[in-house]
């Protein structure tokens, strides 16, 4: 089996990177076509997967607001019913539903983490294409201008995976120490 020469490997790698970059741009065009109501101007600064994930966040927000509207309706009924136990039960149910709706915040933050990761991947692909002397397709997610680093950026990781991160009990002990 003959080994591939380094220069031939570089050519193959450059070719694959070019194809990958063109795939990313083509996929974005297709997604923009699907989501026609939104202007292309809004989309061009988002990576392709970020556009889809952004839609997920929007839809979950709409659904959550509808659920909370129903909670308000339950509360109004609870007040209108002149029955101490029924009123309490209905308000407790409404409260539990409201508490559960915080899923939208947590999922939204997790999705934003994924979106940032995907944007970074697209930027790195763009850099590699440039490094290998390829042609940057139009609308490739460009390297963002050097953004001012937030002083607490290292502390902003968002929700931790299950089993990681401190529990409320752990946090209470830390604060008391």
């Amino acid at each position: 089996m003959s080994a591939t020469s380094p220069s031939k490997s570089n050519v193959v790698a450059a070719h694959e990177l070019q194809k990958l970059a063109e795939f990313i741009v083509q996929a974005r065009k297709e997604i923009i076509a699907i989501n026609a109501p939104k202007g292309e101007e809004q989309k061009k600064n988002l990576s392709i997967a970020a556009m889809e994930l952004d839609e997920v966040v929007q839809h979950t927000e709409q659904a959550t607001n509808k659920i909370m509207d129903k909670c308000d309706a339950i509360n109004r009924i609870a007040i209108a019913i002149n029955s101490p136990w029924a009123t309490k039960d209905l308000r407790d149910i409404s409260l539990s539903i409201l508490e559960a709706c915080s899923f939208q915040d947590i999922t939204g933050q997790r999705i934003r983490k994924v979106m940032r990761t995907l944007a970074e991947i697209e930027i790195r692909v763009a850099r590699l294409v440039a490094l290998f002397g390829g042609t940057m397709p139009d609308n490739m997610l460009a390297d963002p201008a050097t953004a001012k680093k937030r002083p607490d950026e290292h502390l902003m990781e968002g929700p931790q995976l299950r089993g990681q991160g401190a529990s409320q009990e752990d946090i209470d002990k830390l604060l008391e120490s």
Binding site: E99, S102, L155, E157, Q168, D170, I171, L174, L175
Partner: peptide, 29 residues
């Protein structure tokens, strides 16, 4: 906040936070 790493809690404590609640949480908490 959903930020639940101990580094975050310590930083907030040092900055003078009065209390710290990790999401998700309920009315009782």
């Amino acid at each position: 906040t959903a930020e639940s790493k101990t580094d975050n809690v310590i930083a907030a404590k040092q900055a003078g936070v009065s209390n710290y609640i990790v999401k998700p949480f309920n009315a009782e908490t």
